[in-house]
């Protein structure tokens, strides 16, 4: 962790909703190419933490530095960070009035100022990689949940992000569609993408994660490689969580 400068650095990051602390002095450093899986009970602040990294939420204290740019009130910094950080949401958040191709080309064309043709070429490349090239000209509502989430991943990749954030990408999917989304995420991980992924898919965590981060009540209480995390969790809270989630 000392040899390269971190891609993402959270330094004593805290956040409050009114009087309620959702994030308490979070410290996290992510190396380029590293894959982090974040898990923890609902309400533990894991989504909030990830959403702070591209400033969909504002942190109240501490420092967040993404690829050398610190997130402050400066709008230019925010836009710089957002165009370098791809995000995949639980509810896909595809734009329903645009085709899948339109979803994928909008930001490259208007943020990156890419010519339409080039943007479409790149979009088709990623849609092919996501195995939904044949859906390019349909609207999101015509696709299955799994296809929609893969389209959303392609949309984020079209911006050539340096980091991908996943906020429970499979939680809104029917069980038979979870596999197809996890598959493309594994592919992406193998290509060397830096990833932070909030998920309860422990199989995925075992397969690709370099580190598993466990959060509870706004704090990171355990941080370990998957093997250690799953076999010798230190905290009772962690053991309980694992027994609940793996127990069935």
């Amino acid at each position: 962790m000392t040899d390269a400068k971190p891609m993402i650095l959270l330094d004593n990051v805290s956040k409050w909703y009114g009087q309620f602390a959702v994030l308490k002095d979070i410290n996290l450093s992510v190396r380029p190419g590293e894959k982090i899986v974040v898990c923890g009970p609902s309400g533990s602040g894991k989504s909030t933490m990830v959403r702070c990294i591209n400033r969909l939420e504002q942190h109240d204290d501490g420092k967040i530095i993404v690829n050398g740019t610190e997130l402050t009130r400066d709008v230019r910094n925010i836009d710089t960070v957002r165009s370098e950080v791809g995000m995949v949401f639980q509810q896909f958040n595809l734009f329903p009035h645009l085709t899948i191709l339109g979803n994928c080309t909008l930001a490259p064309m208007w943020v990156r100022k890419m010519p339409k043709k080039k943007a479409e070429e790149i979009a088709m490349e990623y849609l092919t990689q996501m195995r939904i090239a044949d859906q390019a000209h349909k609207h999101p509502a015509q696709l299955s949940g799994g296809q929609q989430q893969r389209a959303a991943i392609a949309r984020a990749l079209c911006m050539h992000p340096k980091v991908m954030l996943f906020d429970e990408p499979t939680s809104a999917l029917d069980p038979e569609m979870i596999g197809e989304v996890l598959e493309v995420m594994v592919d992406l991980a193998k290509e060397g993408m830096t990833m932070i992924c909030v998920t309860h898919e422990m199989g995925f965590a075992r397969e690709v994660a370099d580190r598993v981060v466990f959060m509870d009540a706004g704090e990171i209480i355990e941080e370990a490689d998957p093997e250690t995390f799953f076999t010798q969790p230190k905290h009772d809270r962690c053991k309980l969580f694992l027994s609940q989630i793996l127990g069935h």
């Binding site: 791809g86 958040n93 943020v111 949309r155």
Partner: peptide, 20 residues
Amino acid sequence: GQTEGAAALGLGYWRATVFI
């Protein structure tokens, strides 16, 4: 989620407003 999706792609306020 629509405005968040647009924001996450780096579309600023006006572009998100006009296109999304």
